[in-house]
Design a protein around this nucleic acid. Sequence first.
DNA 1: ATTGTTGGATTGTTGAACGATTCTACGATA
DNA 2: TATCGTAGAATCGTTCAACAATCCAACAAT
Lengths: 223, 223
Amino acid sequence: MSTLAQNKADLERASTAQKVADMLRERVLLGELEPGLRLSEEAIGGALGVSRNTLREAFRLLTRDRILVHEHSRGVFVRRPTADDVRDLYAARRVIECGALRLWNAVGDAQREAVRAPVRQAVARAEKNDFSKTGSANIQFHRGIVGLAGSARLSDESDRLLAELMLAFRVAHEVEAFHQTYLPWNRKIVELLNDGTVEQAVQQLDEYFDAAEQDLASRLLAD
Amino acid sequence: MSTLAQNKADLERASTAQKVADMLRERVLLGELEPGLRLSEEAIGGALGVSRNTLREAFRLLTRDRILVHEHSRGVFVRRPTADDVRDLYAARRVIECGALRLWNAVGDAQREAVRAPVRQAVARAEKNDFSKTGSANIQFHRGIVGLAGSARLSDESDRLLAELMLAFRVAHEVEAFHQTYLPWNRKIVELLNDGTVEQAVQQLDEYFDAAEQDLASRLLAD
DNA sequence: ATTGTTGGATTGTTGAACGATTCTACGATA
DNA sequence: TATCGTAGAATCGTTCAACAATCCAACAAT
């Protein structure tokens, strides 16, 4: 934990714009700033004590992360994913995660453990009727899968997709209940992986995506 | 082509920062701005006639696209990919493109044609000893493959990976000669696809990546 | 109900300013 | 000679104020 590479990150302190962007991202993903909400430069900048220029830099960062959308001369808004967005999102996730999962037998055990552990924890908690962190456990599971590919770039993009999906859940008013539904699926996938039947696990993951996409898309259309 | 949705894109003309970013991106990818070069805010801003604030917004955009790297209080530089970057890049491409290619039988013929056409054109030109556009044909081939997934987000990320790879070629002094080498491979892949042996095509693509990565990484290490 | 019109509010962009950080060159010291 | 430290220049980070361009909401006219 105390390598020089670690310390380097501390030294390279974030710029103000970066810090503002991080804070806003958190606010949005926590649901304090609803999808569709317009973020006034003056209001936010005043509240945070940063200049308009710096704030605009932060907005650009979040726009590129698809957290915000930028409309020319109208301002920036918290992204409000549509059913079409959800389709696109899941098409991307399907390719990335199914592709990464197929590498199961080619990677080291540490990487495999990053897939198993979140499910194990979620199961343990669920048996005690503690569903507090099932959401983040589900996300960790999928992050673990993408991590099998061993590409930081792919993991970063996956994080962006996941964040955007968070917003879609928010729009569908399905933040808490959602993740719990799919724990059995994750469990089954890990079982199949441990059995060495990777292709079956991939197929299971694919079905998971089908179900999740259907569920979410239908809720968005009803909106 | 003349739908209202199309016109909308024209109306929403890019901001100055966006236009500056587009111009700089082109300059970098054309090789007019070498990897490693530092881009002075004052020099570039003065030459382009935009203010520092606007220019900095453009820099942020390109930084997020991994065209530039930003070092705190030191400025922005044209990205100079390392051998490690190349490994990461190909790990990502392998997952994305192999995953997308496996969807061959699930997509419409227009999408399949976007994969075949670039290879057909490149072959036709090569027979006339015209190697002028083999580079972009190769890129179009891979863009076509990613397009099979039907996700704009995935295609965008793929474009970023490809652009970054362009920079790596540039560092390796291998811009022109590179693409030609792999035309036979692309041809073979299309043949296998047309034969209906998708899995074999995927395997062939995987080997293509192996060879390309090896080639490029070794040239970068020698640098 | 639809279509101008008109202020008022907000964004887009600029230019200047100044503290903070980095770089460069030049000596000082061993 | 090589290393170290330091002053000064150059550049970045951030803020502020200003103004033009654009959008919006309310109202008037048809």
